[in-house]
Design a protein around this nucleic acid. Structure first.
Length: 298
RNA sequence: GGGGAGAUACCAAAGCGGCCAACUGGGGCAGACUGUAAAUCUGCUGGCUAAUGCCUUCGUAGGUUCGAAUCCUGCUCUCCCCA
């Protein structure tokens, strides 16, 4: 019988955590978190990590194992998860991976092309070019360094252009030459289960959850991390809005309202990411018995 | 009771005779995205249409005009000031 990685995915706030814990417990297996912000140990309330009680009941991996100062990526995640899985599969042929970071999940499921790590100096160089000279100079540089990628990128998205430029700079090759889009074979099966609910319901849950985070002390958590606000990990819904409040750019009520709105938008972007993936079997969190019986039959 | 201001699409808010299906912002919807991804970026948002286009809109009922969201009159409602 083949080992199976059950991927439980869905937009923020649908209720993945509870179901993942329930599944892991009844099939006595572990949970791998595929949530790019729950990786950081300094962020707890705003990222809605599983509760202490849930963490005690089920062994979780990749929860709060990094510092916000650390560099991490979907590619490293792929490598780390693949390195961990064999030992988990010796204990149980079913392992659950739950989370909402589409790109990280895809890296584990399909693999991601092998591209060298960026030279921080190159990244710095193009970030500076962007802030000092604007996007047009980035475009011109890309047109020269990698005309092929230039013809397919979204030329209005500076992050895309910078990524290509920094890779051209650090490798001396065209960024597009690394993009092979090859699917990496896996020696285990994968079952993707998507969780979703009606938009109204999802949004109402998100709004409520933000209020709960505020009650639990999100403002204080954000305040504690304020000195580090320039770090990428803190360019996150629930934190960045507080920084505008601390900087007196917006009121507290406005910050809370924006956290809710940005969380809703994030949920929508997640759904867009998965929309064309026909391998996902979608369920409403209210029909967990179906998910249980589906997995029992594996 | 008297005087003044205003009613615009889901909300806010421009427009004040033709270039207006109507600026802009919010909200919403849809999408892109191979290493910073809870990031970054894009389109749409009166109805029908693949598109050209057509149809119904700017409180309401009339009027003026070749032509009105824009001007005039009545009515309804809201707000402010005086009594």
């Amino acid at each position: 019988m083949k080992n199976i990685l059950i991927v439980l995915l869905g937009p923020t706030g649908v209720g993945k955590t509870d179901i993942a814990v329930g599944l892991a417990q009844s099939f006595s297996t572990d949970v791998i978190s595929a949530d790019s912000r729950q990786f950081y140990r300094e962020m707890t309330i705003g990222t809605a990590v599983p509760s202490d009680e849930q963490l005690k009941r089920v062994k979780h991996h990749f929860i709060q194992f990094l510092s916000i100062e650390d560099y991490y990526s979907a590619s490293i995640f792929e490598r780390d998860v693949l390195a961990l899985l064999p030992s988990l599969f010796t204990k149980n042929r079913l392992v659950i991976m739950a989370g909402g970071s589409g790109m990280y999940i895809d890296a584990v499921v399909n693999g991601i092309d092998d591209i060298p790590d960026v030279d921080p100096a190159a990244r710095e160089k193009y970030n500076r070019m962007y802030s000092e000279q604007g996007i047009e100079s980035l475009r011109m540089a890309l047109k020269i360094l990698d005309p092929e990628y230039y013809s397919i990128v979204d030329l209005r998205n500076h992050k895309r252009i910078i990524r290509a430029l920094e890779m051209c700079e650090t490798t001396g090759k065209q960024y597009s030459s690394f993009l092979k889009n090859e699917k990496h074979p896996r020696d285990f099966s994968i079952l993707k289960i998507g969780l979703n609910r009606s938009r109204d319901e999802l949004y109402a849950r998100i709004n409520e959850r933000v209020d709960e985070m505020i009650e639990k002390g999100l403002e204080e958590e954000a305040m504690r991390l304020y000195p580090k606000r320039h770090l990428n990990a803190l360019n996150t819904v629930g934190y960045r809005e507080f920084y505008d409040y601390f900087d007196c750019k917006i009121t507290l009520d406005k910050a809370i309202e924006l956290i809710k709105r940005n969380s809703r938008r994030y949920a929508k972007r997640q759904l867009t990411w998965w929309a064309k993936d026909e391998t996902i079997k979608w369920y409403n969190p209210g029909e967990t018995e179906k998910v249980f019986s589906l997995i029992s039959g594996l």
